[in-house]
Amino acid sequence: MENVTEFTLLVGLGSVGAGFLGALTGLGGGVVLVPLLVLAFGVDIRYAMGASLVSVIATSSAAAAAYVKEGFTNIRIGMFLEVATTFGAVAGAFVALYVGGSAIAAVFGSVLLASAYLSLRRRRESGPAGGPDPVAARLRLDGVFPTPAGPQAYHVRRVPLGFGLMFVAGVLSGLLGIGSGAFKVLAMDQAMRIPFKVSTTTSNFMIGVTAAASAGIYLARGYIDPGLAMPVMLGVSLGSVAGARLLPHTRPRVLRVVFAAVIVVLGVEMLYRGLTGKM
């Protein structure tokens, strides 16, 4: 690359693509962004994580504003589970400070491969799981969401399990510089049996707060480089807005397969580099 302008434009373009795909597939921009910066642009993984994390705050906050309006987001569930994700994020960010780039790359590769598997797997329809949860009743987590046939009530199950999984989601977010939205949705949709649309929008609502917890630590430790974060944050935002606009007109199954193939390739490469210590 010739100069800073060229580097900025290329990184910005790559980030538009990552944000676009992230919005279309619901996996978010971070999972493809960090490997892209590391593998294609040779950026140090810590700078890549810093840039990715701030872009995650931008996209999730912008989308949350729109979702809250539609009435799917359950603010109480979000606020309650944020206790778990923020503590997890702080723990993850501290671990990231003390382990090397290779270890982070190896974990990242494994998470990419797991995400590919999860995005392709056919989703099990969530039936009722056990009786009503007393913790959910105590915390008034049960809610109502809009359907074409009118408002429908739902109950939240297995709150302690969901809370524990959210802590893990927070750790992954702080350790890898991603939003870990896929994992959050898994915890809410599969473990807590919250309706899918409520799970995805509430997960998105929580991502910004989770990411802000580790971003503070990244910032204090000098992981956030303005020259890199600027094109990444602007590019990912632009790409995800475009992706969200296009979403109703796409065939999600085809997209998922394409995206899964991309993250498998990135995952194998990250895992290889991590395990061979080439970071």
Partner: peptide
Amino acid sequence: YLARHGGEPPEGKVFRGEP
């Protein structure tokens, strides 16, 4: 940033931490 530094060669990508 680009107006002032746009023509410079890209910085090294080795991690030094921000000032």
